[in-house]
Simulated assay, not measured.
Amino acid sequence: MTGLVLVTHSGLGESMRRQAEVILGRMIQMTTVSVSYSADPDTALEELIGALAMSVDQDGAVVLTDLPGATPHNLATRAAARRDLPVVSGLNLPMLLKVINHIDKPASELAELACLGGHQGIIET
């Protein structure tokens, strides 16, 4: 099983996790890292590096972030580069559910599925 790490602004990752667990009716194994607006970037980076170290398994890990170019994404990109892990930004619930439902796939495939799930979840009616 590939590791799953959500790196988001305060509270968003935890909320997404709770909603996914309600929808799927089970606990989800993932790590969430919240980055507050007042966080020291160096301290947050060290916390994130530690979280990734605990989340990576033999299949690696995929990192999902909420907003491209924002502090959580920038820190995740820096931390993930140390382990050559994929980072996908633009987190939405369909993206998260797609990844959870295919968590047995390698990290590189999960990153592609995350993008697919995220796009499929955006519709105009």
Rank of each mutant, 00 (worst) to 15 (best):
M1S: 07
L4E: 01
V5W: 06
T8N: 11
H9M: 07
S10M: 07
G11F: 09
G11V: 09
G11M: 06
M16V: 14
R17L: 13
Q19I: 15
A20I: 07
E21D: 09
V22P: 00
I23P: 01
I23W: 08
M27G: 11
I28V: 15
T31G: 05
T32V: 15
T32Q: 06
V33M: 01
V33D: 00
S34H: 13
S34G: 13
S36Y: 08
S38F: 15
L45C: 03
E46L: 10
E46I: 08
E46K: 10
I49R: 14
I49C: 04
A53I: 14
A53P: 13
M54C: 06
M54R: 15
M54G: 09
S55W: 05
D57K: 09
Q58C: 08
Q58I: 10
G60P: 07
T65K: 00
A70N: 08
A70W: 06
T71V: 08
T71H: 02
H73L: 00
L75Y: 02
A76W: 00
A76K: 01
T77V: 14
A80Q: 03
R82S: 08
R83I: 07
L85V: 05
V88T: 03
S89L: 01
G90Q: 03
G90C: 08
N92F: 04
N92H: 09
L93P: 02
L97K: 10
L97W: 07
V99P: 01
I100M: 07
N101A: 09
D104P: 01
K105G: 01
P106A: 09
S108E: 14
S108L: 10
E109H: 00
E109I: 06
L110F: 10
L110V: 09
A114W: 01
L116Q: 15
G117A: 10
Q120G: 09
I122R: 09
I122H: 02
I122T: 13
I123E: 12
I123Q: 12
T125H: 10
